[in-house]
Design a protein around this nucleic acid. Structure first.
Length: 562
DNA sequence: AAAAAAT
C-alpha cells in the first residue's frame, strides 16, 4: 500500500497524473489516473489540467472534492496551506516548545515490560510519509508524553496515561497508530451479517476510533488527524452533535478509517446502521475522567461492550485521563489488557510560565475592573474570560461589545456554528476577547492566549488549574487574574495552597479570608490534596500504582501535560 | 449549582 502514497516530490509534466486527495471518494484514493482516463469529478474541473476545486482552500466541506494534478504545485500548496497553515498563521501555529525546560519531567510507569522512551521521531522508525507530515506540521521533537507513549503504542501495548489533551498527547497516539496503518494498508471489513445490499456499500468500518467528551475538542483532534493522515490511504472523519447529521453521513461515506467522535452522535450513527465498529483495531478514550463526569459512562460502555466492537484482546486500547479515580480504574480494568500505566507531569510549570494574580473584587465592581484590565491589554493579545453560567457569558460579552470591545462568547447554549465561529474569530484575533463557560476550560489548545481572567472563580481548584493553563502553554509565558470575593470562600484554602506551591504572591487579605474561613469546609481538607485519595490504585492486580507519587503529581498541582 | 452531550 505504501507505494500508492505519493511522495513530496512532484513528478514532471511528462508523467502527469491525477491523484485523488484527502476528503475524496474512498475508492479512488491513492489511485493514479492518466489525464485521459481521469474520472470526472463533481464540482471541480475547470477543464484540462486544472481539475482542482477551490474547496481545498476552505470552501464548504461538501465541495472539497480536491482532485488535482499532482504536478500543479498550486493545488498541492493549497491543500497544504489549509491543513498546516501559513508559516506565520497564528491560528495554526504551534507555539515553539522550549524543550530545554522539559528535562526534569516526572514520569511514572507501572506495568510489565515497558519499552524505553525515544528521543526522536525517527525511532522506532515511522513510515516515511508520516515523517513528512510531521515535518509539515512543524513537530520538531517529541514532547515528553510522546517520548514514552509512542514506543508503548508502537509495541502494541494497551496504555492508561494520565495526561491532558492537546496536540502533544494526541500526536503521541496518532503517530504510531498511523505509522502501522500506513505500512500495513487498509483492512477489508469483516463479514457483517447485518449488512444488507442497501447498507453494505454505505456503512463505514473505521479501524481506529477516538472518543472525546466535547465537540470543540473532537474537531480539534480531527484537524490533527487530518494533518498526519495527509497523502495516505487513511481517511480521517469526525462526527459530533449539533451539526447536520446528513452532511456528516455523506462525509463518512467518502471514507472513514480514523474516526473522532463524541459518544452521543456516534451511538446515533450506529443505530442508523451507518457505522460499524466490527473492524476496530485501535480504540482511544480521551479525557476519560471528564467523560464520566459528564455522565457518558453508559454510552461509552455501550459503544465498547455492547456493539460489534472486537473484544479487548482483539484490539489495542489507549486511555487518557487527568486523574485516576476509582471509576476510571474500573473502566481501565474492563477495557484494557495487561496495560502500562504512564504518568507524565510537569512539576512547577505554573510557577515557571504563568503569573497568577488574585484581586479582591465585589460582584458589583467586576465589570468596571474588567474594563480597566482590558483597556490596558496589549494589541494582539488574546484574553480568555471565564464565567460560571451561560447567562453570564452572554451578558458579559454583550456588555463588552456595548463598550466597543471586540468580544465574543462560547457556551453550551450557543449553536454549534456559533461556537465554532467564536473559537475561530478568537484564534485569528478578530475578536481577541472570548467569554467562556466551562466548555472551554479543558483541553482546548488555543495558541497565544496571553491572559486568562477568572471573572467568576470556579468552586473546584482543579477547574481553576485547567482554566489558567489555557495560557502559558508550551513554554510561553502568560498571566492569570482571578476576581475573588467572599462568595469564593469555598476555594480559598486550595487556592492559597496552590499559589504557595507555585511560588506566587499571596495577598494579605487572602490570608485573612482563609483564616476567617477555617472550618468553613475547605474542600480538600482531610481527604488529601486535590482529590488525591481518589487517585489511589487498589485492588488491581495487574497494575499496582499505589505509591503516593501519583498524588504528588496529580493535575491539581501540575499544569496538565498537553 | 452549573456545565457538557443525540434529537
Amino acid at each position: 500500500m505504501r507505494n500508492q502514497q505519493r511522495t513530496a516530490s512532484s513528478p514532471s509534466i511528462a508523467d502527469a497524473y491525477i491523484t485523488v486527495e484527502p476528503f475524496c471518494l474512498g475508492r479512488w484514493i491513492g489511485q493514479k489516473y492518466s489525464l485521459s482516463s481521469a474520472p470526472s469529478v463533481r464540482g471541480g474541473s475547470e477543464g484540462g489540467r486544472g481539475a482542482y476545486d477551490r474547496g481545498g482552500c476552505g470552501g464548504d466541506l461538501d465541495c472539497r472534492v480536491a482532485v488535482m494534478l499532482a504536478d500543479t504545485k498550486e493545488g498541492e500548496t493549497c491543500i497544504e496551506k489549509e491543513l498546516f497553515g501559513e508559516p506565520d498563521d497564528p491560528s495554526k501555529q504551534h507555539a515553539n516548545i522550549n524543550f530545554e525546560k522539559y528535562n526534569n519531567i516526572p514520569v511514572e510507569r507501572t506495568g510489565s515490560g515497558f519499552p524505553e522512551p525515544v528521543t526522536t521521531f525517527m525511532n522506532p522508525p515511522l513510515d516515511p510519509v508520516l515523517l513528512e507530515n510531521i515535518v509539515f506540521a512543524r513537530y520538531i521533537s517529541p514532547t515528553p508524553v510522546q517520548k514514552y507513549s509512542v514506543p508503548i503504542v508502537a509495541a502494541g501495548r494497551d496504555l492508561m496515561a494520565c495526561a491532558q489533551t492537546g496536540s502533544g498527547k494526541t500526536g503521541g497516539v496518532f503517530l504510531p497508530i498511523l505509522s502501522t496503518s500506513f505500512t500495513s494498508g487498509p483492512r477489508p471489513p469483516p463479514h457483517d451479517r447485518q449488512a444488507t445490499g442497501y447498507n453494505i456499500r454505505r456503512k463505514a468500518y473505521p479501524t481506529a476510533l477516538i472518543l472525546v467528551p466535547t465537540r470543540e475538542l473532537v474537531s480539534q483532534i480531527h484537524e490533527e488527524s487530518r494533518k498526519f493522515a495527509y497523502r495516505s490511504w487513511v481517511r480521517p472523519a469526525v462526527v459530533y452533535g449539533g451539526a447536520d447529521i446528513n452532511s456528516q453521513i455523506r462525509l463518512i461515506e467518502r471514507g472513514c478509517d480514523l474516526l473522532s467522535a463524541t459518544p452521543g452522535r456516534l451511538v446515533d450513527l450506529i443505530e442508523r446502521g451507518r457505522i460499524s465498529l466490527a473492524n476496530i483495531q485501535y480504540l482511544v478514550l480521551d479525557e476519560a475522567d471528564r467523560m464520566l463526569d459528564m455522565g457518558f459512562e453508559p454510552q461509552i460502555r455501550r459503544i465498547v461492550q455492547e456493539e460489534d466492537m472486537p473484544g479487548v484482546h482483539e484490539r489495542q486500547t489507549l486511555m487518557f485521563s487527568a486523574t485516576f479515580p476509582r471509576d476510571i480504574q474500573m473502566l481501565a480494568k474492563d477495557f484494557l489488557k495487561d496495560y502500562i500505566f504512564l504518568l507524565v507531569g510537569r512539576v512547577g510549570s505554573t510557577s515557571e510560565n504563568i503569573t497568577q494574580e488574585v484581586e479582591y473584587v465585589e460582584d458589583n465592581d467586576k465589570r468596571s475592573v474588567l474594563l480597566d484590565i482590558l483597556a490596558n491589554e496589549l494589541k494582539g493579545a488574546l484574553t480568555l474570560v471565564f464565567v460560571e453560567t451561560k447567562r453570564m457569558a452572554d451578558m458579559l460579552s454583550d456588555f463588552l461589545m456595548a463598550n466597543s470591545l471586540p468580544a465574543t462568547s462560547i457556551h453550551g447554549d450557543r449553536t454549534q456554528r456559533e461556537r465554532e465561529m467564536a473559537l475561530q474569530t478568537f484564534k485569528t484575533g478578530r475578536t481577541p476577547i472570548l467569554v467562556a463557560t466551562a466548555v472551554a476550560a479543558r483541553g482546548l489548545d488555543i495558541p497565544h492566549v496571553t491572559h486568562v481572567i477568572n471573572y467568576d472563580l470556579p468552586s473546584d481548584i482543579d477547574d481553576y488549574v485547567h482554566r489558567i493553563c489555557r495560557t502559558g502553554r508550551a513554554g510561553n509565558t502568560g498571566v492569570s487574574t482571578a476576581f475573588f470575593n467572599r462568595s469564593n470562600r469555598n476555594i480559598v484554602r486550595d487556592l492559597k495552597e496552590l499559589l504557595h506551591e507555585a511560588n506566587q504572591e499571596i495577598p494579605a487579605w487572602l490570608e485573612t479570608v482563609a483564616h476567617e474561613s477555617s472550618g468553613f469546609g475547605g474542600s480538600s481538607h482531610g481527604r488529601g490534596r486535590g482529590g488525591g485519595s481518589r487517585g489511589r490504585g487498589r485492588g488491581n492486580a495487574s497494575c499496582d500504582y499505589g505509591s503516593s507519587n501519583f498524588i504528588k503529581y496529580n493535575a491539581t498541582k501540575v499544569c496538565p501535560m498537553e
